[in-house]
Simulated assay, not measured.
Amino acid sequence: MAALLAGVLAAPQAVAGGGASPAGVPDHGSSDVLPSLRRDLVAHYDFSHPAQGDPTVERDRGRSGTGIRLINGGDRMRVQDQAHRHSGSALQVQQINPATAGNDDWKAGIYDERAVESLRAFNGARAATVMGWVKMTGENPSPNSNTADPGDRYNAIGLAGVLSGDSNGHDVRALLELIQVNGELKLVALGRRIDGGASQTFAAEADWQTLLPREEWVFLAATFDYDTGEMALYRNGRPLPGFYTRTDDPWALAGDPEPDLTTAGDPRGIKIGGSFPQNTRENNPCNCRMDSLMFLDRAASPREILGQYRRVT
């Protein structure tokens, strides 16, 4: 399946890298991106730029040209909803059949078990940023379709992240999500420096439903500094008070060599709205909409994140 998906995406990825937008699709150029962020914007999806000849693929407005698949829902996942004043369409992701262990959830992303070379900026990276707009539109967290217990629910809600170089479609290097922390669902930044190694989580202190009220667009950002171990979360441009869930050294930062970087291997892809973008399993779906998802190969500063929020609002 991985080889098949990679083959299907090969041509659209080339289209997604640049050039004019398809007829009838507005192209906002770079006017909606803060100038200081543009050079380091590895991937950017506004869900208003389908690939020519294949509307199930979203073009990348970042520098890498990494097209992503709109999985299971195809072009129907592009909905008319404006997250901000520069918006065109938004992406709808959602659980489809809560009681069935199938592979029909709406999600987005790309996966290749041989690695996605266009995402090489995250190979041996010193830092990363994941940010974008999210609006909760349904029941979250979702019923767990992988168990027989009708009352069981997933312990997480997947938003957006970059996969590790050895990922099975779930493990990540940099991720925005909601997950159980000490028995309570929390908005978190979750990062992993070493493939196959431990992850670190920075969790927002505030109640997640206060941070992400239903039917309200919210701008979220997570930054990861793999050299210092520092992580941060932002909501509508402002930093969120939070805490690290581990107090040891999960990223193995102590000692030489310096600086500390991620594993020297290309990521296996990007996941949006749940795990397993190769569509072999359902996990942690989000009943929500997303827009203007941005992936950078450095940690954006607090001033830049506020500036990006203000630029489009």
Rank of each mutant, 00 (worst) to 15 (best):
L240V: 12
E282Y: 05
L306G: 11
W208T: 05
F243G: 08
T56I: 05
G65I: 05
P267W: 01
F219S: 01
L41Y: 01
L34V: 06
A198Q: 14
L306A: 15
P250Y: 05
E230R: 15
R59P: 02
R63V: 15
L37R: 03
A127V: 04
S89C: 10
A174V: 04
I96L: 05
T210H: 12
D171W: 05
I194L: 15
T313Q: 12
A299S: 15
N146M: 09
I68C: 01
I157G: 13
G196C: 09
Q80F: 06
E113D: 13
A2M: 11
R193P: 03
H44C: 08
G237N: 04
G165I: 01
T100L: 10
P98L: 07
L175E: 02
R214V: 10
P259L: 08
F219E: 03
A160G: 12
D152H: 12
L187W: 06
N140V: 03
G18T: 05
A6Y: 07
D105K: 10
D256E: 13
H28Y: 09
P259F: 03
P213N: 14
G307C: 11
G88C: 02
G24T: 14
P141L: 14
A189K: 02
M231N: 00
G169K: 05
I96F: 04
L261A: 08
A99F: 01
A6H: 11
R310K: 15
L9N: 12
W251L: 11
G183A: 07
A10Y: 11
C286L: 14
L211D: 08
P250C: 06
F202C: 04
P150V: 02
G88E: 04
S118I: 00
Y45L: 09
Y45Q: 06
D46Q: 05
A43R: 06
D46I: 02
D249W: 12
P12Y: 07
N236S: 05
R268I: 00
L9Q: 13
L190R: 15
L253C: 04
I68A: 04
M77R: 07
P250S: 08
D149Q: 08
